[in-house]
Design a protein around this nucleic acid. Structure first.
Lengths: 310, 310
DNA sequence: TCGATCATGCAGCCATTATGCATGAATGTC
DNA sequence: GACATTCATGCATAATGGCTGCATGATCGA
């Protein structure tokens, strides 16, 4: 409902060049250039000035971008309240999340919504946290479940999003069943720093989490193997080629001869899993309902962990 | 900046049928129908329901229209603040007003702006109060000077506008120089109820004002002649064909052998002249400046009247 | 000075959107 | 009760607007 040219300006503000804006938005550079020119013309305002071979926002442009967040949030809030005022529910509802979230949290949620609201077409989409947020902004989905630290943008501070904490998902070590620490109580990463590790290829969200876990302790693990999916890395562990870190949420169904060992210590690595919605949209009936359901599901997961530990 | 389809919905909300919306917006009925359908599709919301052979807004639709006023006002306010933040002034500035306002208030203002801001292209447009407000909403002009009672819409109560009172413009009687009341002090309309009157054709803003002045006193004047412009009616008065009412602001330059006589009484007819801007836009540099100038001009006019009366 | 990296303008193309007429439904009228 | 009106809407056609791809000019680094 808000003019797309303003959204283009927002993208430009966050990346700084016309070409990159074009890549991010999917337009051609000429289109972005034309849009920005047209925006300035129709607003009768100078938003950009030449700066070397690039462009720079003027004070007016910066201000416009800053306030546009609140404008968009208000629009979302109006939409949500209109649905409530008319006692309506949307016919389409999209949610996105990364792999483990999709299976553990979104799948039950989607089933719940389909059951409670048979008229609603529910759409689940699995994608990386960063991509989920992009899709959220682009209104391709209405709800995202992401790992706060893997989102590239600061979900908490970004005015485009509202964040709802769901649960802290600690990382466990998976080792072969005959490993020295198998069956023990919690171990520290220091104890395992000499091991050969299996992780994902650099540049992936999980790899970043992996290295962050060690560098927080001043350690640099020896990485012997790289695997993209849990099943693969589990197989590598089974084969005795090394050990790995897996989030508690990742089930190891079907994995034989490996053991999950908890990590001890104050600074043990965890993923903070949060739900994110477009600012202002939290009041929309389906979203309010979904967030409540997600919170409940997260509580159940936490409760079942306590049972395990007792 | 706000999607045009939402503006179309607003127009529909105020007039109630697709055909009239088409007339008011300049679209064809099919276009309006398609826009409303598309709006509902993209919002995934039912805004309209069939009602007889027409359409009716749903609760959600009514709510959306109501809140869209605040959204548009916020956007105006953002634009205004962005201009201030960047210390910019628009290059175009449009103002509209009805005849006497245009000459007495807008002409000096336009001259003032041109003098103070040589870079600004000032555009003055003379139109009826009702049309001025339409042009204001359509962003064809940025400032309107209207008669509050002639605007068809309630300028004060309409959230689309902000109103600034300028002055009360009383109506005087113009009579031939040899008329019985010429040169007297104030007269009452009752005294003149037997006269033959000259006014505008029915349906015009001035005619409405004319009849309102009499019906407020329970009188029905005898209308002998109808003239669209002050010059014409003045000529008719000069010719001894009747007498008329003219606002104080209307100068009678060039009129010979006619006399302006003030009207006495508590309920003497006046026009309330106000400046109107789009809600939120009052903070824009040119508008702030212009409103101050208009207020000052109005004060000068009032002051010169006091001088006359002393 | 050369090459790389920008933004921008222009010709051509495609998609979105409006138009005009025909249709169907609902209402009031004689 | 038949007819004329007044609505909204759908479809085929036409036009407008917006995007792409390439060429150009400007700026900066080597």
């Amino acid at each position: 409902m808000i003019d797309s040219r303003l959204l283009t300006l927002r993208t430009f503000a966050s990346c700084g060049t016309v070409s990159t804006t074009a890549e991010l938005t999917g337009y051609s550079p000429s289109a972005v250039s034309a849009q920005l020119r047209e925006l300035q013309r129709s607003l009768d305002m100078q938003l950009l000035v030449k700066d070397g071979r690039g462009l720079r926002l003027t004070a007016a442009g910066r201000y416009l971008v800053k306030r546009s967040d609140t404008l968009i949030a208000e629009w979302e809030s109006i939409k949500a309240a209109a649905l409530r005022a008319g006692d309506q529910t949307p016919t389409h509802f999209g949610m996105g999340g990364f792999s483990t979230a999709a299976s553990n949290l979104l799948a039950p949620l989607a089933a719940h919504v389909k059951r409670e609201r048979p008229g609603v077409q529910v759409h689940v989409l699995e994608a990386s946290p960063a991509r989920c947020l992009d899709l959220l902004v682009a209104e391709r989905i209405d709800l995202a479940v992401v790992v706060a630290s893997q989102a590239e943008v600061d979900v908490d501070g970004d005015p485009r999003f509202e964040q709802i904490s769901l649960l802290n998902d600690p990382l466990d070590v998976i080792v072969p069943a005959d490993h020295a620490v198998a069956g023990n109580g919690p171990v520290t990463l220091e104890e395992l720093s000499g091991e050969e590790w299996i992780t994902d290829v650099p540049g992936t969200p999980y790899h970043d989490l992996f290295t962050a876990a060690f560098s927080a302790l001043g350690l640099t693990p020896r990485v012997s193997h790289e695997a993209a999916e849990w099943d693969t890395s589990t197989a590598l562990v089974e084969a005795g080629l090394g050990i790995g870190l897996v989030p508690r949420l990742a089930s190891l169904e079907g994995a034989r001869n490996v053991v999950r060992v908890r990590i001890a210590g104050q600074r043990r690595p965890t993923r903070k899993i949060v739900a994110a919605v477009r600012s202002g949209s939290a009041g929309s009936p389906l979203i309010t309902e979904s967030l409540a359901y997600l919170r409940a599901t997260a509580q159940e997961i936490l409760a079942s962990r306590l049972d395990d530990e007792s």
